[in-house]
């Protein structure tokens, strides 16, 4: 294809886009909604995977010591933990240390802890943070050490991990269904927009045929039109996702002190762009091809 023809086809396709203003807008809108939902889904999915990994790496057992336990019982507990084959290490965290950590995590809002300065009033308990050789063994080990004397309670993150996986599973099925329906609507609308252009330009198409234009010379502007519709449809969701995700990150940072960090904005946008831009173009091109197959017999 000659360069001057490419410029000509592009010019023609933009003219057509404006000629069918409302239909173009509707097509772009549906592509945008489809891709926006897809992007949100991709971001959630990516972050859930990211969080799962973070949590899995961090899965530890927090063992709280019974306040009533005698020093013999405590020594026995240390011995038991040290000798357990599944346990990699067990770090002692005194309740004072625990309070200090909490103060750090809360940052500016550590005013919440006012009134607990006196060791007598410290609501926390002495604890051990236990990590495993194999994170899979967490729940069985947790159940076992819960029975040791001097143990006041045991906590571990297994439920969180399982719930996250359940959540993404349901989300995937729902969103995939929605996506397919929206993608079909988008291609349908695009093909209709292009059909309108074909009708509007019937006279020009006939003349082009009679003077010996090749089939592709006639088809290219319509293909470019679909491509433009798809491409414009990707711009809106990308801008929306950029600012939306940025606010989510800022909100989490400001309000959810204990929440692990999400995927950074640049990395996340990179992934979304790689997926959304080609998909938008593909929807546009498929829409034009359908329309040309049906309405542009050249």
């Amino acid at each position: 294809m000659l360069f001057r023809n490419i410029l000509f086809f592009m010019g023609e396709s933009w003219k057509n886009l404006f000629r069918n203003g409302w239909m173009s807008l509707a097509s772009i809108g549906v592509v945008a909604v489809t891709l926006f939902i897809l992007s949100v889904f991709v971001l959630i999915n990516m972050n859930v995977h990211h969080l799962t990994e973070v949590i899995e790496q961090d899965v530890e057992i927090a063992l709280y010591i019974d306040e009533e336990a005698t020093s013999d019982e405590r020594e026995q507990l240390v011995e038991n933990l040290r000798n357990h084959p599944e346990i990699k290490k067990a770090d002692f965290v005194s309740k004072e240390e625990g309070l200090e950590r909490l103060r750090d995590q809360l940052g500016e809002e550590n005013g919440l802890l006012e009134g607990y300065e006196n060791p007598e009033d410290n609501p926390l308990r002495d604890a051990y943070e236990i990590s495993m050789h194999d994170p899979e063994a967490v729940s069985s080990v947790a159940r076992e050490i819960e029975t040791y004397p001097a143990v006041g309670g045991v906590e571990f993150g297994e439920d969180v991990v399982e719930n996250l996986f359940d959540f993404t599973g349901v989300l995937q099925v729902t969103v995939m269904g929605l996506m397919v329906a929206l993608a079909l609507t988008a291609t349908f609308l695009i093909s209709h927009t292009i059909r309108l252009t074909v009708m509007l330009r019937k006279r020009e198409i006939t003349i082009m045929k009679y003077v010996g234009a090749t089939n592709w010379f006639i088809r290219w502007p319509f293909l470019f039109e679909g491509f433009n519709l798809g491409l414009l449809g990707t711009v809106i969701p990308l801008v929306g996702i950029y600012f939306g995700y940025e606010s989510v990150l800022q909100w989490i940072d400001a309000n959810l002190k204990f929440f692990p960090s999400l995927i950074p904005l640049e990395t996340a946008m990179g992934q979304v762009i790689i997926l959304v831009v080609p998909l938008g173009m593909a929807l546009g091109i498929i829409g034009s091809l359908i329309s040309m197959g049906r309405y542009l017999k050249v």
Binding site: R4, F8, E204, I207, V211, G212, F217
Partner: peptide
């Protein structure tokens, strides 16, 4: 010009 371009003529 429209007809000539469609049949492959240069500007």
């Amino acid at each position: 010009a429209f007809a000539m371009r469609a049949s492959g003529a240069s500007p």
